[in-house]
């Protein structure tokens, strides 16, 4: 792709690529905006920028990630995602073939999720002003009547449910980027979770307190945020948290704690105790929640600590980190 002179023709080329791939009336209409009816209830809106190296990794690429990530942020409100916008910042010299691969993957992800990409934008910038391609997506969706999921809603006694294994995405991306080879290839878990969410909402109703997708900073960062917002602590059982053996081994090797590693297709839910069983059953009945597990509970704690208990007693404090994981031992 080129920038400057001839950039205009190129932009048209790219736009055509998108229209063909995303294939929907609103986009094809060629307006600078998408117009759609507003439905009953409350709408949610979210936006996220996607910057990932490498752009293609086992289990996904920046395209599918930019669809899944934003859908999931909409879905964590308990909402049904409807439309996405997409904005691309592309570095001069980026291969058109790679771009069309990314766009194709976005289109497939959106199609599978039954969400339309209805408007967008493209800029090509000088070499060095970007790293391949950056994608920014915005999503809107609707929340069912009466549902109000919020990070400050966790109460002592509530159960914590996790939809599946943790650490897959972060380790998959890092292994690919750093050229580390492990015995078994580790795939990103990148996936759109709104289907799973819908099943959980149906099963849990008002018993659902909140849902979060533990992306950057992992489960540890997510639960520390919730603990701070809700003014509570968490007690998690180490053995109950599902981690794939190969991810566990890779984390051991890298010296990383899987609790701090990013996920892109997992959610953690806080559920009132009397609804936990029903929600868990619904999760396990969904293809993205087969490994769902109760991993602990909300406790009263002035320190707002997330604690990990082991089978032999002892509670490790899983703190928020100020930056990267830093060695502590002296």
């Amino acid at each position: 792709l080129s920038h400057g002179a001839g950039g205009r023709a190129m932009a048209q080329l790219v736009a055509d690529l998108f229209v063909a791939a995303f294939d929907n009336d609103m986009l094809s209409a060629g307006n600078d905006q998408a117009a759609f009816d507003v439905s009953e209830g409350r709408m949610v809106m979210t936006t996220d920028g996607y910057v990932v190296s490498p752009l293609f990794f086992p289990g996904g690429d920046i395209g599918s990630l930019s669809v899944h990530g934003t859908i999931n942020d909409v879905a964590m409100a308990g909402a049904r995602p409807l439309y996405l916008s997409a904005s691309f910042i592309i570095e001069e010299g980026f291969a058109l073939s790679d771009l069309s691969r990314i766009v194709g993957s976005m289109a497939a992800a959106a199609r599978d999720a039954r969400v339309k990409i209805v408007t967008g934008d493209t800029k090509v910038v000088e070499r060095g002003k970007a790293d391949g391609v950056f994608i920014s997506t915005t999503g809107v969706g609707v929340v069912p009547e009466g549902l109000n999921l919020s990070a400050d809603a966790a109460r002592p006694g509530d159960k914590v449910l996790l939809s599946g294994t943790i650490g897959d995405h972060g380790i998959a991306v890092m292994s690919k980027r750093e050229n580390l080879t492990f015995d078994t290839e580790i795939l990103s878990d990148s996936a759109a979770l709104h289907g799973l969410v819908a099943a959980m909402v149906a099963a849990g109703g008002p018993g659902l307190r909140l849902m979060r997708d533990p992306t950057r900073g992992g489960l540890a960062a997510t639960l520390n945020e919730v603990a701070a917002s809700s003014g509570v602590g968490f007690k998690l059982e180490e053995a109950a948290i599902p981690v794939r053996p190969q991810v566990h081994a890779a984390c051991e090797f890298l010296g990383l704690d899987p609790l701090y590693v990013a996920n892109e297709g997992k959610l953690v839910a806080v559920v009132a105790p009397d609804h936990a069983e029903a929600v868990l059953t619904a999760m396990r009945a969904h293809p993205l929640g087969l490994d769902a597990a109760p991993i602990g509970e909300v406790v009263a704690d002035d320190n707002r600590f997330v604690q990990l208990t082991t089978a032999f007693g002892g509670g490790r404090i899983v703190d928020w980190l100020s930056g990267d994981q830093l060695p502590r031992i002296c």
Partner: peptide
């Protein structure tokens, strides 16, 4: 031991800060 991978960690400074630790 996975020495080859460990050397990648060290070269890429991946969770591998420099240390002057005597321990």
């Amino acid at each position: 031991k996975p020495v080859a991978n460990l050397r990648v960690l060290m070269q890429r400074r991946l969770n591998s800060p420099l240390t002057s630790s005597t321990g």
